[in-house]
């Protein structure tokens, strides 16, 4: 019977605030958040593809939204999110193959992923803005 069960004082598993924040931990949390953001972002990709399939008018509507300052902000964020999830995800593929699993190596490839995603985002948008003649 369930009523006869006694509540036993058991050691509780420590929760988040107990741990020192490490880069692998922060990257793990960020990987999920960014993944969820990309999930929503696929609706924008679908919009772009459907607009392109539909005709010049629908495409112009997409372009005007994407070209607004807010649209540009979303696209820059999308670029970073994609590259961050991509480079961060490569770490998991490496770890699956037992590569770079020591704490030091795990930290190193995490920082490499962060820097690669930021550098990639800057590179992509530097090229885009220079093609537009803005910079």
């Amino acid at each position: 019977m369930a009523e006869q069960r006694q509540a036993v004082e058991r050691p509780l598993s420590p929760h988040l605030q107990i741990y020192r924040v490490t880069i692998t931990m922060a990257m793990s949390i960020l990987h999920r958040i960014v993944g969820v953001a990309l999930y929503g972002g696929t609706a924008l990709v679908a919009w772009w593809l459907i607009a392109t399939a539909s005709g010049p008018d629908a495409y112009a509507v997409f372009q005007s939204v994407a070209g607004s300052w807010f649209g540009q902000l979303v696209l820059i964020g999308f670029t970073w999110a994609l590259l961050h999830h991509l480079f961060g995800g490569i770490r998991y593929l490496l770890w699956d193959e037992i590569v770079a699993t020591s704490p030091k190596a795990a930290d190193t490839i995490s920082w490499i992923a962060i820097v690669a995603a930021l550098a990639g985002t800057v590179l992509v948008w530097a090229v885009i803005f220079s093609m537009r003649g803005v910079i």
Binding site: L49, I50, A53
Partner: peptide, 17 residues
């Protein structure tokens, strides 16, 4: 639902193009 709806919308558009 979301995954299949977005996925099929994208596939349809790409095939149409």
């Amino acid at each position: 639902f979301f995954a299949y709806a977005v996925g099929l919308a994208c596939l349809y558009a790409v095939v149409k193009i």
